[in-house]
Amino acid sequence: MIGLLKSMATTMKHALDGKTFTVEYPEEAPDVSPRFRGIHKFSQERCIWCRQCEKVCPNDTIQIVTDDKRQGEQYNLHVAQCVYCRLCEEVCPVDAILLTENFEFTGDTKHDLVYNKEQLGNVPWYKDIDPLAAREPDRGAWVGEGDGEVDYQ
């Protein structure tokens, strides 16, 4: 009996202390960490069309079309298919593709959620946080300097 009453007393204590752990979104938009992986932003100025992102993407989400002179024509990213793993940002040598912290995007059809390079370029920052700046202190951390030996594949 005592255990039962203790359980009931515990829940009643929670009821009466008035604390909640839920927030009223969207009035109170949560702060996400600087490393949060949201939707991508693409910078055509920086991109060198090396196709590393397309190659590393685990489920072929990025599609790049270049002409015969390796000039970039299209950069399509299927935002709904993407698993937000950030490998494209990790391998990009010039920070042309980033995952912003923005998770507030919607689409009505599947086709709305395939972004071309204009749409990717226009993606807004979440709360105006530039992910590169937010991640700056530790971005270079995973790129090791190596032992000085050349390792040819």
Partner: peptide, 13 residues
């Protein structure tokens, strides 16, 4: 509302 009180939530509002 009552369930939300017990579970530390803001319910329907």
């Amino acid at each position: 509302k009552i369930t939300a009180m017990f579970t530390d939530r803001i319910a329907i509002n």
